[in-house]
């Protein structure tokens, strides 16, 4: 059985990527199962999805804690203690990382032992689809690594996208972009091995007083410590020569990231927390804000 785990951010297409691989494997005549995990999901937040592919009926459910293949659609997740995408990867597993860097650079930077494949699929998405939406691109990459036939991938994209997109031109572009990714990735051998983590000893849970055992938090709130700046794909940048200080951007920023912090009275952006939603660009009446693609690496 091949166990594939996808990590991305809300809005990138993580769930659809896992579905494409599931449907493609199913069309290839294999047993398949796919499943996203999300709770209070929202654009930008870490998302995980899973696909299992097997020649035998699948007697597993729920999260994949020991993947054979890891598809990391957003490099910034590697530094996110809430996501920890490398957790549980098998030693002979394969990682795909969406990055501008080479496999050797990524291996060195993130201390990865496993086989690693890299490709800047964000750039491919922007160039071919006009948006950093990665579902079909990551699906193409994952299908290649999983050894799925090109034709099954193509049919899977047609099927899955026609349920959510009405624009047939956009579906065609997605197929082209996905097959481009599929074909640019060299075939790899994924050695599947059995799950080694069997779980630890069962213990007797002791009684604890209500001061400990109630679902309450006694520490001060820590939301300000959780920076969301690395959610961005595009960075909004002010051009103060055009800015007329109308403050519409200040009012419209949904996260309160824009404020007047300098003596000249111009608004500025708190980049530690700006999620890159780009509402400010849409709202600015004098077009004083531009967007620049940001690569959050070293």
């Amino acid at each position: 059985m091949l166990r594939i785990r996808f990590h991305g951010r809300g809005g990138q297409g993580t769930k659809i990527a896992s579905r494409l691989v599931g449907t493609a494997a199913f069309l290839d005549g294999l047993y398949a199962q796919d499943f996203p995990l999300y709770g209070a999901e929202r654009r930008g937040a870490p998302i995980t999805a899973f696909t299992r592919i097997s020649r035998e009926p699948i007697l597993e459910r729920g999260v994949i804690s020991e993947p054979d293949i890891l598809i990391i659609m957003d490099e910034t997740l590697l530094d996110d203690p809430m996501a920890m995408p490398l957790t549980g990867l098998k030693e002979d597993g394969v990682i795909f990382l969406n990055t501008t860097h080479s496999p050797a650079e990524a291996k060195n930077r993130y201390k990865i032992k496993a086989q690693i494949i890299t490709l800047d699929i964000t750039k491919i998405g922007i160039d071919t689809l006009g948006k950093p939406i990665l579902s079909t691109l990551a699906g193409g990459v994952a299908s290649k690594i999983a050894g799925i036939r090109e034709d099954s991938l193509k049919k899977a994209i047609e099927k899955e996208l026609s349920e959510i997109i009405t624009d047939s031109e956009l579906i065609k572009k997605n197929i082209e972009a996905s097959l481009y990714c599929f074909n640019i990735i060299k075939p790899v051998e994924v050695k599947t091995s059995e799950i080694t983590h069997k779980g630890s000893t069962v213990i007797s849970v002791p009684f604890e007083a209500a001061s400990i055992s109630t679902p309450s938090v006694n520490t001060a709130g820590n939301i300000p410590l959780r920076k969301t700046g690395n959610w961005r794909t595009f960075k909004p940048i002010f051009n103060y020569e055009l800015c007329n200080k109308c403050m519409i951007c200040v009012a419209r920023c949904p996260d309160g990231c824009i404020a007047v912090r300098n003596e000249r009275g111009f608004p500025s952006i708190d980049y530690d927390n700006c999620k890159g939603c780009l509402i400010c660009i849409d709202e600015c009446p004098v077009h004083a804000i531009e967007k620049v693609r940001e690569v959050h690496t070293w």
Binding site: S200, T201, V202, I203, V205, N218
Partner: peptide, 19 residues
């Protein structure tokens, strides 16, 4: 309930400021 899960729970309790 496993020992690993218990240890993880102990960490969370500490983060939540307990006991």
């Amino acid at each position: 309930y496993t020992e690993t899960e218990w240890n993880e729970m102990e960490k969370l309790k500490k983060m939540a400021g307990k006991p």
